[in-house]
Nucleic acid binder design. Structure first.
Ligand SMILES: [Mn+2]
Ligand SMILES: [Mn+2]
Ligand SMILES: [Mn+2]
Ligand SMILES: [Mn+2]
Lengths: 218, 218
DNA sequence: ATATTTTGTTAGGTTAATCTAACTTTATAT
DNA sequence: ATATAAAGTTAGATTAACCTAACAAAATAT
């Protein structure tokens, strides 16, 4: 059985090499930064994970998950997102509070618990941030989506997911009047730096490109 | 913040020195046995817990929890029993399955989670094994109770709690037709070894004294 | 009162996960 | 093509939690 630490490495690698991250291989420094450890630490762990056949890795080479590693990573993501959904739907947590607690809950080992939890939540397909929840087989719904920053001026779109899960970002999103399913109209865009003027529920706001890069819409 | 290991030592000491255990101090070997570690290991940890002012301990002396240690131990017990109740009430776990998973869940750190969970469960006072759940202040309902082995022949009583929480014991209890609130009539007792003949829902069974010692009745 | 058993402690090691400091390899820029 | 910078690795330490083996103290039994 994997330790919590090993699980965190697999999950980090999964995110660093997922579609979302537009590349399929990661580096030691990048991985270390994600996990808030020093590169030397990540390097040690990579050797261990390679030994366990969970990552593809050669000295000075790029890193990727093996099929086995990916399967395990997806299972952790599944648990994380089911717990977030539980906290949000059943315990009245707000969407900026769920992530931190789910970081702990995702490491509970009990297949039965997850099966039962999923059933209790009525087999949800998306978590409170709009991210797809993998099913027991590791399959997840892929939605066509673009970032708000890619939307044409004058168009209206619907918020379906957020990329950043940090409490500070999510609180900012709420402050602008946004939540999942909100309708957003793009009023104008500054060519200089991509700053957008948007309208949500009749309320206008000016937001940075960085902000818009972190919102997924259809 | 306490590590999972430290929490487990506090919890073990709490049980070893509670009313239930008819003594208020514990020994190193006893503690080590409870936690499935060697006495040398427990000894190291005792020094650490003393340093943190969580236990009263002197070389070759008896061990007890300080007020601070006891408060923390009760909080872990509270979490454990709330999670057991959640698993039993909401996720359809059976009473022999809940303990093992709760052993993991009790170490999740989030005061808000526990508050919300308690509210979601409607402030339960007893867990699936009939054990009292401490409230947020650490107070718990104390019920007058005796063990089935202490009951007089001919009397009928009600099962309100089980002492042993192991799956094997609980499955045995179910096999005899018992659950919380079951009515039990004591038909006869062997003076030689305390073996009892009991009747539950019209069904007669013969059980050992050890078995009867682990059932609390009123 | 002394011998034996039980209980508790110490010394010295191991493993997982982390670190710093020094080093090597690969990538980038002139 | 070489120098510099960035990325990655290694060696050697540290800490928490565990171990075994040897020893010391306390409890008990004769
Ligand atoms: Mn999350
Ligand atoms: Mn999420
Ligand atoms: Mn339990
Ligand atoms: Mn219980």
């Amino acid at each position: 059985m994997l330790s919590q630490t090993e699980e965190n490495y697999l999950k980090a690698l999964f995110y660093l090499t997922s579609e979302n991250a537009d590349k399929s291989e990661a580096g030691t420094n990048e991985l270390a930064a994600t996990l808030n450890v020093k590169p030397a630490t990540a390097n040690d762990m990579l050797k261990k994970l390679k030994e366990k056949k969970l990552v593809n890795y050669e000295r000075y080479g790029k890193i990727s998950l093996t099929n086995s590693g990916k399967k395990q990573a997806i299972d952790i993501v599944r648990k994380h997102r089911l717990w977030e959904t539980f906290l949000y739907e059943k315990l009245e947590f707000t969407w900026d509070e769920v992530h931190e607690v789910a970081e702990q809950l995702e490491h509970i080992h009990s297949p039965k618990l997850i099966e039962k939890l999923e059933k209790f939540l009525n087999y949800p397909e998306f978590d409170p941030h709009g991210d797809a929840i993998p099913n027991a087989k590791g399959e997840l719904k892929v939605q066509a989506r673009k970032t708000l920053s890619e939307m044409a001026v004058g168009k209206t779109c619907k918020l379906i997911a957020v990329k950043d899960n940090s409490a500070s970002f999510l609180q900012y999103v709420m402050k602008v009047g946004l939540g999942l399913s909100s309708k957003i109209k793009v009023i104008s865009r500054q060519d200089f730096d991509g700053t957008l003027e948007i309208e949500v529920n009749g309320k206008k706001s000016v937001v940075s490109q960085k902000f818009a890069d972190n919102l997924f819409v259809v």
